[in-house]
Nucleic acid binder design. Structure first.
Lengths: 139, 139
DNA sequence: CGTTATAGCTTGGTCACCGATATACTCGCC
DNA sequence: GGCGAGTATATCGGTGACCAAGCTATAACG
């Protein structure tokens, strides 16, 4: 187990959606869409796969079932462990964001003069690579 | 191509490391370790794979080569495109962090009473799943 | 009666990342 | 003078989270 700490974005947003109160799968999908301003659309394959995985890892657990308008709703709830992991992960992301912001600001000062063109470079790369290329033992 | 926007963490930190000024591969590894307070150690396989990929995507380009103490140093530079992508990605992360913080705060109020125990739940899951299971065509 | 929306779930493929391994040169140690 | 550690490059095989696409079922709208 050992909870693979660097959560990917969809997983992170699933936990985030569940943080305040239990939700059912379809609700999570719409909630994540709202949270990300519609920039990220959760796919069912991602959601239910993640839900099973997170349940195994103990970050999430089934809450209850309801029948609303003849349709089944299966609710999931964030566990205490899940809350702790989400908080830690949020802190890590916050540090990353700060580091990136700082360094992007520093960049503005030394900005590439020639605008660096459209970043081709493919012309010089082949000439660079062959420098090293020793045994190249196949197999 | 189309630049798969949700960057993973190692990729994000590579771009972050390169933001202020060009660096060579090994320098990026040590810099990323410093940026993350030693929590994330970039593996060579990840680094050079990512560098090639990012070069193809135009986010990064070779800068120059130096020989220091008989050892080759291959420097890479963040392109303008790369800077734009990193800035956008940073903004996205910032929003995610804010959303998660907000919702975690909301959670504190409705915190699970029984501490939700160590979040096992594996005992009740099997009882929940079989509810639906219609065609179940086993290939 | 077909389409859309809500709600659940499965299967198959891909690709970034990890872990291990390889080359090569320099320096300090014994 | 060989040996390991540190610097620096690169490749290869495996894994797993994610995506794309599809399936079943009910209720409401046309």
């Amino acid at each position: 187990m050992t909870t693979p700490v660097p959560l990917r974005e969809p997983t992170f947003l699933i936990l985030t959606a569940l943080a305040p109160e239990p939700m059912h799968g379809y609700g999570i999908i719409t909630e994540v869409a709202a949270l990300s301003d519609g920039r990220l659309t959760l796919r069912p394959g991602t959601l239910y796969g993640a839900l099973d995985r997170l349940t195994d890892e103990g970050l999430v657990e089934p809450d209850r079932e309801e029948i609303v308008g003849g349709r089944l709703r299966r609710y999931y709830r964030l566990t205490d462990t899940g809350g702790t992991v989400l908080a830690a992960e949020t802190e890590r992301l916050r540090r990353n964001v700060e580091a990136a912001s700082r360094r992007l600001r520093a960049r503005a000062g030394s900005a590439a003069p020639g605008s660096a063109a459209t970043a081709r470079g493919s012309a010089l790369r082949p000439a660079l690579r062959p420098t090293l290329r020793p045994a190249g033992g196949p197999a």
